[in-house]
Amino acid sequence: MTIDQLVQTTLGGLAIGCIYSLIALGISMIIRATDILHFAQGEMLMIGSMAGLSSFWLQGMPFWLVLLAGVLGGGLVSMLVEVVVYRTLRLRRVSAINIMIATLGVSIVLQNVARLVWGSEPLRYPTLFASGGVKFAGFTVSPQLIWIVLLSGLIMGVLILFFRFTRLGIAMQAAAQDPDVAQLMGISVDRTTTYTFAISGMMAGAAGVLLGSLFFASFNMGFLTGIKAFVAATLGGLGSIAGAMIGGLIFGLIETFSGTLISTAYKDAVGMVVLIAILLFMPTGLLTRGGREV
């Protein structure tokens, strides 16, 4: 591998890793707030991707509006699913296994709604970034990848600021850590849970636009990506915000490098082997304080 390839592969891995990070963050937030393993998180990515694409079709909107449409699309659908489905199930005291199955059902529904609306063929994404290469420290790199890394970093930075400095963010953290105490302090756990889903949907939606701009958008782009993001979240430590970010980056790098070095066909298998190894040898992931079981 030449040094140029190394730079290219690393950048590609970081970009795809950022996308995993964005979804993994949502999965981690949800599992922390509700103990739900959200198999439909990947569908929020798909919805975001489709919403962004549609907004582009409608008006030929500039890139930042396409991204905003994706964010809103993912956030709205995620919130809707929480309010309509998961909250109902929680109120009915349905067991964790069944809620997990329901998230699979939600995934099937969203995929098929998307297939009805947008068809089953992969859809080409418009060129949202300047094409061609830019010179960066002597290497020619794709500006698209750099944009993805920068934008994801920006979104995650905003999220951290939100958690640290806003009343709502602090309330959400409190409710996730100890719902009973939070309730006593006058925090509505139902509401913070809804926001948790909304925010994780928004991040997945953003990830959808970014992923779409790299390849294409299709109704079934979400599920496996969601599973991989779960792997990333597990890698970093389920339920940890920083863990999800770093887990996503590491997983993106592992996947991209094994695709280049080992075999394209088995790059997903390498990811799964990493997953199983992490579960076995570091069950709490790289970055968790205390062993919290899920």
């Binding site: 489905v85 109902t88 199930l89 009915r92 349905v94 067991s95 069944n98 809620i99 199955i101 329901a102 699979l104 059902g105 939600v106 995934s107 099937i108 529904v109 969203l110 995929q111 098929n112 709604v113 297939r115 009805l116």
Partner: peptide, 15 residues
């Protein structure tokens, strides 16, 4: 498949 997904949610919700 859409209907099927809805059924999955409903039956999962049935406990």
């Amino acid at each position: 498949l859409l209907l099927f997904g809805v059924m999955v949610i409903v039956f999962a919700g049935a406990g």
